[in-house]
Design a protein around this nucleic acid. Structure first.
Lengths: 348, 348
DNA sequence: TTTTAGCACTCAATTAAGGAGAGTGCTAAC
DNA sequence: GTTAGCACTCTCCTTAATTGAGTGCTAAAA
């Protein structure tokens, strides 16, 4: 399906896309001939443009308008015409890292990076929390708050901290709590969360019951916390720069803005979107390639970030298909690296 | 400044406001005569309307348009014409409470209530976290995650849980940690957070240093957590139903939407807004009465919520001055009650 | 004195019409 | 294969005309 285009067609396609990204409006042959010295006349360019339209790389909003890139055109552009080399400005990474190195809290780092990415790209950024399935439980601890109220704290090796207050119908002695802590530490710590499924927990429960006289209630709440906090697909998604989409001319229609903002309000949707991306290091979905109906006029550039070599989460940008791909790609690239490093450092 | 209006003027003002709340456009004398049986002719109504305009309760967008309520008009309406009696539909409170009673986490409760309130009113809801200044520290605990990495957990009696990972340049023995925990418990627990200021913490530090050989670094990070998490005005503000403002005809201008969304993106601003409200149980700020420039065309209805009889936070709604005050007032009233109850229950 | 009918007047919003401009496709010449 | 020329198309902008809701004022009626 991906024809090899002759050099001049490539050149013209690239020029049209670049120009369109700047102007957000259809591009005519004359503009092209003037701004990009292609050494051919507008008429020739017109012929080439007609060819490119036949091949599906360009579209014409109406008979007497210029051409606009199609999704296929962008796809070709991104795959063939954009260099993916890391062309970082030296020092930028270090600067950002220094800027954020004081942050110890993983949630703070994530939302900080979401903001940073949206500021850099001027599109809306989204970051998913480290996936728990590939994390290990580093620490589990129960502490007593009041007579029949406990605080359960769970810490993963990716630095995520979850806590939940558990109210019991009975009170536990300090001895029982300390026993419970030792027991749970031994049974649960340093295990992959993916392995701490219902089956395993049932086993642990049975064993515990045999040794200690406890209410079933405690363990039920215990399950809930595990399921709720760590279930796949249920991870939190952080947004940054929501209002940037308003700057885009393709959203100068209130109806479209509404649709978009309503979408971004729904966490399940964000989850669906970000989880529909493959696991590859950097993936780009253009317009119709997206599965979610409401963003079929948007593009996504999403990278996977790593904590100690494990793919744990995704960070990316959502904007109109007419996106500044080269800039966005390198920004997402850089920030995903930094995010991984910062979290690794913070979670020791 | 608040004149006593004769009954007919009252009636007409109320009718205009009610009609305007529905239609969002200027109201003419004919409409009024038709829809509300005032038993007088449009001409008479016109005279009254001219009077009400002279008194400042109404405004005229342009010479040949109907009248629109002024801020002063809304103020009169809210103060004199809206009944503040609680007219709850019986059972609603119980239903909501049941719906959310499973939630144990205070943050979940708050954001759940923000969503609920925005769904009920169809405006944007904002809720501030329980103020820490009037809370007591219920539990402070340090636990070891790795050799030189600790987790500090702070729990207030209002159920707020804060945690922070602290990376040290030295490692602490289990004995030292357990000593530290006993010491901090004794010195800090059950104290009002307002009293745990820099002075007091310095004292504690001095005493601790005398007894235990510790790096200064630990205490520095300790301070930060206290200041960051619990400083007044720095509390988190939860939003619900941001996209509802888009439904309002007064925001059918993209520029206005942008301004508003940018405002709601800034947490400091939300803090400023919600903290500028008096401490009264239910306060309403209409248009120009607001201090923050960008919301001088908005109204706020904000209630204080209580946990065990202490005023701890605020919950409210922001929308256009043309707001359905009666419905909003009772919704905010009800939800603030429920919020307080739910948190009280969850934090035991 | 208050209320009402009548009427001229005002102003925003909608519709219609007339360019202006940008761009195309085609043809014929280079 | 490339280019100049030209008729044609379609959107966008501006201007003008029309509509319609609503007012303020005056003078008569209650």
């Amino acid at each position: 399906m991906v024809e090899e285009l002759d050099p001049r067609k490539k050149q013209i396609l690239q020029a049209i896309i670049q120009e369109h990204i700047i102007s957000a409006s259809p591009i005519g042959s004359k503009t092209l001939a003037k701004k990009y010295n292609l050494d051919v006349s507008p008429a020739t360019i017109r012929n080439e443009m007609a060819d490119l339209e036949d091949l599906g790389y360009l579209e014409q909003p109406h008979t007497s308008a210029g051409r606009v890139p199609s999704d296929k055109g962008y796809r070709y552009y991104v795959d063939q015409l954009v260099s993916r080399e890391k062309n970082e400005v030296p020092g930028v990474i270090e600067n950002i890292e220094n800027l954020y190195q004081d942050l110890q809290d993983v949630q703070d780092i994530i939302s900080g990076m979401a903001k940073m990415l949206s500021n850099m790209t001027h599109y809306t950024a989204m970051v998913s929390e480290p996936k728990s399935q590939v994390s290990r439980l580093k620490k589990v601890e129960i502490m007593q708050l009041a007579d029949n109220s406990l605080l359960l704290v769970l810490v993963t090796d990716t630095g995520m901290v979850n806590n939940k207050i558990i109210n019991l119908d009975q009170s536990l002695s300090a001895r029982k709590i300390s026993y419970l802590n030792r027991f749970l530490s031994e049974k649960l710590e340093n295990k992959l969360l993916a392995n701490l499924d219902t089956n395993y927990l049932k086993e642990v429960e049975k064993e515990l019951m045999a040794r200690l006289d406890l209410s079933v209630d405690l363990f039920k709440q215990f399950y809930n916390e595990f399921e709720g906090a760590f279930e796949p697909g249920g991870v939190k998604v952080y947004l940054g720069g929501t209002s940037y989409i308003l700057e885009q001319p393709e959203f100068n229609d209130l109806e479209k803005v509404k649709k978009m903002l309503r979408l971004l309000d729904q966490e399940e949707m964000l989850n669906k979107i970000i989880n529909s991306m493959s696991g590859s290091d950097l993936e780009i979905k253009i317009g119709q390639e997206n599965e979610v109906e409401d963003i079929k006029n948007c593009s996504l550039v999403v990278a996977t970030y790593y904590i100690s070599n494990r793919a744990v989460g995704k960070i990316g940008v959502i904007g109109p298909t007419r996106m500044e791909y080269p800039r966005v790609i390198s920004s997402v690239d850089v920030i995903s690296d930094i995010l991984g490093k910062l979290i690794s450092k913070a979670s020791g």
